[in-house]
Nucleic acid binder design. Structure first.
Lengths: 198, 198
DNA sequence: GTCTGTTATTGGCAGCCTGCCAATAGTAGG
DNA sequence: CCTACTATTGGCAGGCTGCCAATAACAGAC
């Protein structure tokens, strides 16, 4: 019956990766508490103890998954910031919307706007990723990434973006074009009328 | 030593309330998983089994806490929608910002933008509250609360609002005035340039 | 004031989950 | 071929959760 998958020895990196992939899937499906380490191990085809060996802790494993997921969007290449303000704003919005593939959407929006099972630590990871994204946007539209207030405003804008993305990509209550319009107009007015007043 | 607080018999409603208050505090401090039912019971000064009796389940208790927290802001009275568009927009923003008292902020922003330890079920509760708030805003600014696309756009705006609130109220990276400005300008352009185009 | 029925409240049992660690067995290099 | 090295396992101990029968406040009747 059981495939008793013959103890197999892999390189630490491969095993780590294998476990992470399995964990990523499970944590995306169900909340943290409802996923047991037993399940995680089974899904990865590994003994339970190995999770502790590689990650130390269920929580630590979870944090690694979140960390990895949060980095995805920011790794994308950023289009060059040329042209008029309107064009650059469009480019920035396009980048934001484009960094979401339909599948990743589940995880990304969860990890981004919701927080799968979080707390201060998870929050810190996500905040860092969001801040990074905000910096990119600020560069794209020609703002000053070093200005704390500007960055804060754009971080807030990031929430709007993730909200719009969720409406489009999950709820389906907004088309991509509509989401784009919403974000374009908002970002434009923020850059023109808000940032200078901070 | 131990106050052995003499078994005390209360009305179900009082007990329920007492437990909820204690749970609200603990869940606000630490993530779901790190709060044991033992602690919850101790904090409420009650036997562990009573939690199950009243709420059935740790999870159910948690959901009740979230439900209650998510309702707070929407219970506030809404100022009357009169005056010019700019004035009404201002009123709406003011309402949003005002529904956050410094203390509640912790819980509200957590429950709202983060999600303490959530999943589909928690998500549903928060979404409903957010949608309700979006409806109110739409009424205030003179939009059509029945239009699905408009509602979606305003829900997204709600994310911006919560983001701005967090920057102001928790991170301290934005003053209240700055947050107000940001939200005012954004909401204005959304109502004027975006909603009509949906 | 006492007694009794109702039911709020408790305490402990059984099962599952987690982190830990010593034992086991692939595998590369001599 | 055989021997270290270390990836991998399995089981133990403690803690947490849900459940349920036993207990004891409290209200109302007399």
């Amino acid at each position: 019956m059981t495939e008793t998958a013959r103890r197999q020895r892999l390189s630490p990196d491969q095993r780590r990766e294998q476990i992470l992939v399995a964990a990523e899937r499970l944590f995306a499906e169900r909340p943290y508490v409802d996923v047991s380490t037993t399940e995680l191990a089974a899904a990865a085809g590994v003994a339970r103890g190995l999770l502790n060996h590689y990650f130390g802790d269920k929580r630590a494993l979870y944090l690694d998954v979140v960390r990895r997921a949060s980095l995805l969007p920011t790794l994308e290449d950023v289009p060059l910031p040329t042209g008029s303000l309107t064009e650059r704003v469009d480019a920035a919005v396009h980048w934001f919307l484009g960094s979401i593939t339909p599948e990743r959407a589940t995880y990304l929006t969860i990890g981004a706007a919701e927080g799968v099972g979080d707390d201060a630590e998870v929050r810190a990871i996500l905040d860092e990723a969001h801040d990074l994204a905000a910096g990119r946007v600020l560069e794209l539209v020609g703002g000053d990434p070093a200005d704390a207030a500007s960055r804060a405003a754009i971080r807030a804008f990031g929430e709007l973006a993730r909200g719009a993305i969720r409406e489009w990509s999950r709820a389906g209550t907004l088309t991509r074009a509509q989401a784009h319009l919403l974000l374009r107009e908002s970002l434009l007015v923020i850059v023109e009328n808000v940032l200078p007043g901070l």
